[in-house]
Every structure is written in structure tokens, then in C-alpha cells.
């Protein structure tokens, strides 16, 4: 399958995760020329585990030794994690930001923060209000043009966010509820049609937000140097890209305004985002 500009081939020792992926990624195109950029393989932890206690181990072109085996029931999650891992470790064409991105009028809003900050949730809610979802996990910065490229994989919703988004997206196509993962309950949402149909369209970055969930509404402008530090921490391949990554990051933090926003609930966050977007 192709997600944004990146092609993946996913293989598994079991049929179940593949069938689920085929269902959820049914609308996605195949990699250009049929050649994937990354191979992802889910294989049995040890041969006997297939019989006794099936577990899925991540594999692929790049492997992290500490990637923990997941129960087979979480095979779909394993496939998602493996694809993320391949991107995080292997992507060299783009500067990768661990951020969600949505687009309106050809301009991109990037949201990044720690796990639980709400970047996936806010992206899904903005998409439900007409924004184009460019991705909930990675934003791809083209070092040559400075444009943001989309990576609209399945939106990964966690815990309370699952119900918030389900209520906001009545006709949404969701994956199965995956309970008891290291990050709690997880449920995937298939991005809206326009998100997949227009995933080859890049956008000019216009605003960077660092949301924080669970606080009274507040916001503050961030200086370029602070944004630089935060974004290099949020990038999985800044160091690997060398000077190209440096130049791309400097350009981004110089040209794009950034705000930290605190919010107590989704409605407050959406109001803050719309107001800031109007100013940017």
C-alpha cells in the first residue's frame, strides 16, 4: 500500500492482521511501480509460540532489538507500529516530525507534543469539521521546498479519545477495539475520502501548535529557538539527515509562527485552534 509518498509491503505469518489491514486500507493505492520503500514483516516470536501462545514480533528493513512481542490479537497494532518504526528509522527523503497535520486552503497546521497531548484527537476532530487530514503521526517536511507532505495512515485513537471522536464522526470507519495495549485501549479510524484521494498534494506550513491536554485554556507564542529545540526532539531523523535536516528545520522555525496551547477539553481546543488559524 502507499501512504502519502511512501510505499509499504506488509507480510505476516498469520492471515488475521493482513485481512484487517486490507479492510482498513482498502481505499489506499499500491506503491508506485509496485515497489515498496519499506518492507514490514510480522513473524512468530519463536516457532513453538505459534502453537502455545502466539505473539507477534516486529520485523522489517530496520529492527529495534527492544521492540516487545505483542499478543496476536494486537496484530493490527503491531503492523501499524512496524510501519511507524520503518518510517522513523529509515526515512531519508523527508525531515520527519512526530506531529499531526491538517490542511485548509493549501496551508498546513502542524500539531506536536508528548504522547497524550491530543495531536491525533485534534487532527481527527478538525478533519470532521472539513479540514483535510494529512496525517496523525508523521508530518513530512521536504528539505528542498519546505512543503509538508501528507502521511495519512489510519488515525490511532487512544482511551477517552475513542468515544470523543466516535461521537464527532458518526459515519466513520473504525477498526476493532484493541484493549490492553501498553498505551491502553486503541482504536483506528480510516481517514476521510479526501484525505486519501489528495494525499499526494503537499501544503505550505502556516502554523505550528504544541497542544497540552488537561489544563485551563492558555496560550503563548514560542520563540524560534525554543521551537527548534522542541521540533528536533519531535523529529525521528533530524540527525540522520545532517545539514539538509538543519536547513529544513531552520527554515521551518523562521517562517512559521508557533504557539503552545493548553486546553481542558476538545471544544475549547477547537475554538483556540480556529482563532489562531484566523490570525495566522
Amino acid at each position: 500500500m502507499r501512504i502519502g509518498p511512501v510505499g509499504f509491503r506488509v507480510g505476516s505469518d498469520w492471515r488475521a492482521p493482513i485481512a484487517e489491514l486490507e479492510r482498513l486500507y482498502a481505499d489506499y493505492p499500491v506503491p508506485e511501480g509496485g515497489i515498496p520503500d519499506f518492507n514490514v514483516r510480522l513473524f512468530a516470536a519463536r516457532p513453538w509460540r505459534r502453537l502455545l501462545r502466539p505473539a507477534v514480533v516486529l520485523g522489517g528493513d530496520f529492527v529495534l532489538p527492544e521492540a516487545a512481542p505483542l499478543p496476536l490479537a494486537q496484530g493490527l497494532l503491531a503492523a501499524e507500529m512496524a510501519m511507524n518504526l520503518q518510517m522513523a528509522l529509515g526515512q531519508r527523503r523527508y525531515l520527519l516530525l512526530h506531529a499531526s497535520a491538517v490542511e485548509r486552503d493549501g496551508r498546513a497546521l502542524l500539531m506536536t507534543g508528548l504522547s497524550g497531548a491530543g495531536k491525533s484527537t485534534l487532527a481527527a476532530l478538525l478533519a470532521a469539521r472539513g479540514w483535510r487530514l494529512m496525517g496523525d503521526e508523521f508530518a513530512l517536511v521536504d528539505p528542498a521546498s519546505g512543503l509538508i507532505h501528507a502521511f495519512p495512515r489510519l488515525v490511532s485513537l487512544k482511551n477517552e479519545a475513542i468515544e470523543v471522536v466516535r461521537a464527532a464522526v458518526p459515519g466513520g470507519r473504525f477498526g476493532p477495539l484493541i484493549a490492553g495495549t501498553p498505551k491502553g485501549d486503541i482504536r483506528h479510524l480510516v481517514p476521510q475520502t479526501q484525505s486519501i484521494a489528495r494525499m499526494a498534494e503537499p501544503a505550505q506550513p502556516a502554523l505550528i501548535l504544541f497542544p497540552r491536554f488537561g489544563f485551563e485554556p492558555a496560550q503563548r507564542a514560542l520563540r524560534a529557538s525554543e521551537v527548534f529545540v522542541r521540533l528536533t526532539q519531535a523529529s525521528t531523523n533530524y540527525v540522520a539527515l545532517g545539514e539538509r535536516g538543519f536547513e529544513a528545520m531552520v527554515r521551518l522555525v523562521r517562517e512559521v509562527p508557533a504557539r503552545a496551547i493548553d486546553y481542558p477539553n476538545a471544544d475549547a481546543a477547537l475554538a483556540q485552534v480556529e482563532a489562531l488559524w484566523g490570525e495566522s
Binding site: S225, F228, E243, F246
Partner: peptide, 22 residues
């Protein structure tokens, strides 16, 4: 060296080591 002044801070990219200094 690739030196870029941002605000009170200046970024220095050191080509030989690949390190960025603030």
C-alpha cells in the same frame, strides 16, 4: 560551520561532526 542566528540563540551546524549546537 553553518551558522544561523535565530533570536537570543544562534544555531551552529558543525559539518565535520554532524552536530547542531545552540
Amino acid at each position: 560551520l553553518r551558522i544561523q542566528a535565530l533570536d537570543d540563540f544562534t544555531l551552529i551546524f558543525h559539518r565535520r561532526s554532524g552536530l547542531t549546537h545552540l
